[in-house]
Design a protein around this nucleic acid. Sequence first.
DNA 1: AATATATAGGCAAGAAGCTTGAGCAAGTTA
DNA 2: TAACTTGCTCAAGCTTCTTGCCTATATATT
Lengths: 142, 142
Amino acid sequence: MSLTASLLTAATVLVDDIHSGVAARGYTDIRPTHGFVFSRLSEAGATVTEVAEHLGVTRQAASQIVDELVAKGYVERRPHPSDARARLVVLTERGVRCTWAAEDAAVDALESWEDILGEQRLLAMRDELVRLAPNGPLRPAW
Amino acid sequence: MSLTASLLTAATVLVDDIHSGVAARGYTDIRPTHGFVFSRLSEAGATVTEVAEHLGVTRQAASQIVDELVAKGYVERRPHPSDARARLVVLTERGVRCTWAAEDAAVDALESWEDILGEQRLLAMRDELVRLAPNGPLRPAW
DNA sequence: AATATATAGGCAAGAAGCTTGAGCAAGTTA
DNA sequence: TAACTTGCTCAAGCTTCTTGCCTATATATT
């Protein structure tokens, strides 16, 4: 099995597991893509353009995704503090609670991995992966 | 950056790079998904159902993808040797040459990664990833 | 052997989620 | 202040998936 295939299957399995865990915690109306958005917003929010770059999609697509998250109560659009053209997308309380649930789900999903490799090597792998692809997008589809 | 995010960005970057390399070698009418199909077929072919499981999509979707690959000359459907219901999907010569091009492109794409981590650790990472998720699907979208 | 059920595959319609194209408002440059 | 750029969004369209249904063959039951 190639590195490419093993990377992809590992990523797919992990994302699917976390997605199931998030759904089991009551958040059944969102997709993994939305989680990628949340992680971009969690620090201090972001503009639609920044979300688009993070996901590797067009600004229009990012805008639609944000629309959906607004409608479902996970995020809201605020005026941008320093640029009246832009709008700052930030997590609502519901959005924050959902990211907590996702972190919980990630811990659960990684438990079986820690049993196999141990926390040490898992962290080492993460560090190596970050060195290999520090700033890439999280494209939701191919 | 989390393990999940680093896994996904690394996989995304690698897939995008290989896809570009394959396109640069003249195969501009296929997507990464098709490459995942090729890798499943390369041994001894596979049924549509097996392709569907490999990709993590419905049988109908897999059938449509195979339709497209047949139309473009990369694969063909043959009667299955031991089950008259099933059909064996196999690579054509064009399909085989395309998988070669993909392997070339993968080597190119991995060069910069070898510069960063070295071949040893890259192979070690692959082994670890295989242990973590041996039989997962390569879902083309979330 | 006859019947019931399961499995492989595919057609058609529809939905999800992206892109392209166009346009407005606000910022930046000359 | 005029020209251009940037941030965003509306609308339309397209790609690619799913759902629902159907046929043919295989397998299990009686």
